[in-house]
Each structure stands twice: as C-alpha cells, then as structure tokens.
Computed example of a mutant assay.
Amino acid sequence: MALALPRGAISAEPEALSQDGRFVAGFSRDRRNASGVLWQSGDVTRLAPVSGTTDASALGVNSKGVAVGYSITSDNTLVATLWQAGKPQPLESGKVATAINDSGLVVGLGNGHALVWRDGKVSTLKGGRGQARALSSGGIIGGALEGKPVVWKNTASEPTLLSLPPGFQGQVMAVNDQGQALGVVYNDKHFWPAYWKNGKPQPIDWLIPSGSNFVEIVPRSLNNQGQMTGVGLTRSGEWRGFIYTS
C-alpha cells in the first residue's frame, strides 16, 4: 500500500513502523524545508523541528504514536528529538535518536558510538565505535560496529555479528523479536537491501507480490507481525513509500 504525501510536500519517505502497525514515521520535503511525518490510518501529521532548528526527520515510532529522530540547526548541528502528541522535545545536541519501543527505551548514535536513552539518561552500548539503528518491543537492538551488522540482545549484552557476503560491509536498520532483521550490505561497487533471519541472510525478492506496481523495494522497518515499511520503485519510475503485510 502506497502512503499519501502530506499537503504541500513534493516527496515523503517512511522510516519506521510501530510494533502494532498503526503508525508509520518518516519525513517529507517541500520546496524549502524537511519535516518529520506521522501516518496513522490514512491521516498524515507533520512533525515540526524543535525550537531554534530548521528541519527535522522522524526515524522511529512506538505503538503510542511517540516518535523520535532529529532536528537540524542552520549550521547543520543535529539535535536528537522526541515527539509526543506531535510536539517536539530536544533530547540532546550532537546526537540522533533512531528508534523507540513501547516501554520508552530509545536508541541512537552520537560521537561515534551506539547509544541508549532510558529515563532521560544516555549510556553507551558495548562493542566499541558504532551506531544503534533499530529496537524491538522486547529490547533487542540492531545497528553496526565498524561497518559490520550486529544485534544486541539487550542494553547490557555483547554484540552478535550477522553474516555478510565476502568483501561487504553492512548495517541493521530494523529488528523484531522473531529473529528477523532488515538492513543494507555494500562495498565499493554495490549497495543492496538485506534481510536476515536468525542471523543468516535471506533473499528479498519474495517481498514483492505478483502483480504489484512496485518493481524494486528497499524495506526499512518491520514489526513482530511481520509487517514492513520502506520505499519502492514503481513501474512508472517513481519512488514511493509502502507498507507490506504478509
């Protein structure tokens, strides 16, 4: 299912899907600025940047409709941002919030490390330099360390490396509690969407149903029901957001 553009927007892309499938978060662009977007049951809500910034993007959303992402100042400083009831709240300057679950746990990145916010306090995940990009309802975290796709079983665990083709790097962008993960793998010549199940890579073409208007898709988020959202190339040559339900 394609997602509607916000009024006045020239493009929009989804980035995250709530665990119950009711909310999709992302960003849109008009002719001047970018703003966060929240889709719910056909309704589209713009998410404004925090005060003192110019643009915003939502990267994660939970089943309560609370979204996280970042705002950008005029000098390109990133500000980790949380939107509750559509209103922006700054979390921390120089950092990006990438995902939030229903317990209110938030993950993200900053200063070259994978980060976790719990009860307003930020800490660093184990494993060294990297980034946290994904979070399941049960607290499984996905991301990358030094170009290698990893998952953390919880905020205190050591990272687990996912399989990669020889000569490739990768990153986890979405994860659920059923052992599924979405992300990307890449090298100097290629950049492909990736799907892992129980740590092993799986083909992604099966996600495009027969007769679909999409000819290519890049999934970006999934939940425990197996629903996915992302962007896809249509037969008419447009990139549009989509929701996939198995």
Rank of each mutant, 00 (worst) to 15 (best):
V122D: 00
S123T: 14
G127M: 09
G128Q: 09
G128F: 12
G130Y: 05
G130E: 03
Q131N: 11
Q131D: 10
A132C: 07
R133K: 13
R133S: 14
L135G: 01
S136L: 03
S137H: 05
G139N: 02
I140S: 14
I140Y: 11
I140W: 09
I141D: 13
I141Q: 13
G143F: 10
G143M: 06
G143T: 06
G143P: 06
G143K: 11
G143R: 10
A144N: 07
L145M: 07
L145N: 05
E146W: 01
E146A: 12
G147F: 00
K148C: 02
V150K: 10
W152N: 09
W152I: 08
N154R: 05
T155I: 13
T155V: 15
T155N: 06
A156V: 09
A156Q: 12
S157A: 15
E158S: 14
P159M: 02
P159H: 05
T160I: 14
T160D: 07
L161R: 06
L161P: 00
L161V: 14
L162H: 02
S163V: 12
S163H: 11
S163E: 15
S163K: 15
L164I: 03
P166Q: 13
G167F: 14
F168T: 02
Q169N: 14
Q171P: 00
V172R: 13
A174K: 04
V175M: 01
N176V: 01
Q178T: 12
G179V: 04
Q180W: 09
Q180Y: 12
A181G: 01
L182V: 08
L182W: 08
G183F: 12
G183P: 08
G183W: 13
G183N: 09
G183H: 11
V184K: 13
Y186N: 07
Y186A: 08
Y186H: 12
N187F: 07
